[in-house]
């Protein structure tokens, strides 16, 4: 089936099997490999993207479900002027090590900051519960998200 999505501001379409997951559509059909896959159970959040501005786990959606939607992936955050403030905060706070969870973590954090005013550390911790990181112990991720939320 034909699935058409606006990805990072550009209209894209591809002919895919109906069962194709959004994350595989993005990675395998559109070549946007910045969005990673870390589990089989919607637990890790490595595949988090924005669908119509809100964070969503792209392993938990079929590509067909987002036909006509606007999707933002990690490739769509930075501009010619440089990194997105959230990416910059992750860099400055050493909030990544191996970097595998990072695209999903950053997208989830962008959505979190957008959805909530006056985030505090506890709010960030609960808000990012659906995104796992094995390297950082989260301390610097929390610091980065708070820094970017100001």
């Amino acid at each position: 089936m034909e699935v058409s999505v606006t990805v990072n501001g550009t209209g894209r379409s591809a002919d895919v099997e109906p069962r194709t997951l959004l994350v595989h559509y993005l990675r395998d059909d559109l070549g946007l490999t910045g969005t990673n896959i870390g589990c089989d159970t919607s637990s890790c959040g490595a595949c988090t993207v924005l669908v119509d501005g809100r964070s969503a786990k792209s392993c938990t959606l079929l590509a067909a479900q987002v036909d006509g939607a606007e999707v933002t992936t990690i490739e769509g955050l930075a501009t010619a002027d440089g990194l997105h403030p959230m990416q910059q905060a992750f860099h400055e706070c050493h909030a990544l090590q191996c970097g595998y969870c990072t695209p999903g973590m950053v997208m989830a954090a962008v959505s979190l900051v957008d959805e909530y005013d006056d985030l505090d550390a506890a709010g960030v911790r609960v808000g990012l519960e659906g995104n796992l990181c094995r390297c950082t112990g989260y301390q610097n991720i929390v610091r980065a998200v708070l820094a970017a939320s100001e």
Binding site: T33, N36, I37, E92, G99
Partner: peptide, 20 residues
Amino acid sequence: LRKEDPPLLTGESKFIDDLQ
């Protein structure tokens, strides 16, 4: 600050499953 970060933060890095 780490020079490793920008490609990892932007999805530019290639992990094994990213290879075309």
